[in-house]
Amino acid sequence: MQQERCGWAMNDSVEQVYHDNEWGVPSHDERYLFEMLNLEGAQAGLSWRLILNKRAAYKAAFHDFDPDKCAMLTDEELEHIRETAEIVRNKLKIRGVRKNAIAFLKVQAEFGSFGAYIWGFTDGKQIVNHWTDMSQMPAQTALSERISKDLKKRGFIFVGPVIIYSYLQAIGMIDDHVITCPYHTENRS
């Protein structure tokens, strides 16, 4: 059987690099967990390709997604980012980075790390699916609904169940590579 990467990452080099190196790869890195949470939220209603192409600008605008620095951003700094940065200029999404940083720091204080909190939903284990076709992949699951509800309760925004399902894929809690993809967990060497 010929192995071919997942269909969504076949036409754009930025998506291919992300697909091949990050998507579905388990991460416990705090900065990365915070970055992906905010990038997935920024993507709401837009294409992932657009966000990936603006990723460097997001990192520059938000101090490489350092949650401590993002929590300290002033209203004036956030407005300057909205006016000048080459990112999606949605005021609520931009202010959401600060709001999420504050909530993120509270979770770190409570659980020791955000990674301990988020991975606790799966007892630290990756969920490896075995899709034969991308059309089988759900947009959300009971798990993403449960995590979404808990995150909202803790003060996070732009964390609906569809966004959170994408987030879980991004941080590798869920491996949704089709089984013929060379980057599926069971095909990686």
Rank of each mutant, 00 (worst) to 15 (best):
G172W: 05
F65Y: 13
R154E: 12
I118E: 00
Y165R: 09
E186R: 09
E145A: 14
K153W: 01
Y167W: 06
L168S: 12
I127E: 00
A116F: 00
K93E: 12
M134D: 08
E145R: 12
G160Y: 13
G7S: 14
R146M: 11
I174C: 09
H130T: 01
A142R: 14
H63K: 13
D176P: 05
R146I: 04
Q126N: 01
L92Q: 08
N53W: 03
L92K: 10
K153S: 13
D68H: 15
G172S: 11
E4Y: 08
T132H: 11
A60F: 00
Q2E: 15
F114V: 03
V128R: 05
F158M: 11
F156I: 11
H177Q: 03
E22T: 13
K106W: 00
Q136D: 07
E15A: 14
H130D: 05
R82G: 02
S148T: 10
P67L: 06
W131S: 01
G45L: 09
I163G: 05
T185F: 08
G96K: 06
R31L: 09
A101M: 04
L46P: 14
C181Y: 04
F65N: 13
T122A: 01
T185L: 02
T132E: 10
F65H: 04
K69S: 14
W23P: 14
R154G: 12
D29C: 11
M137C: 14
S47K: 10
V17T: 14
N11M: 02
I163Y: 05
G96S: 05
A85P: 15
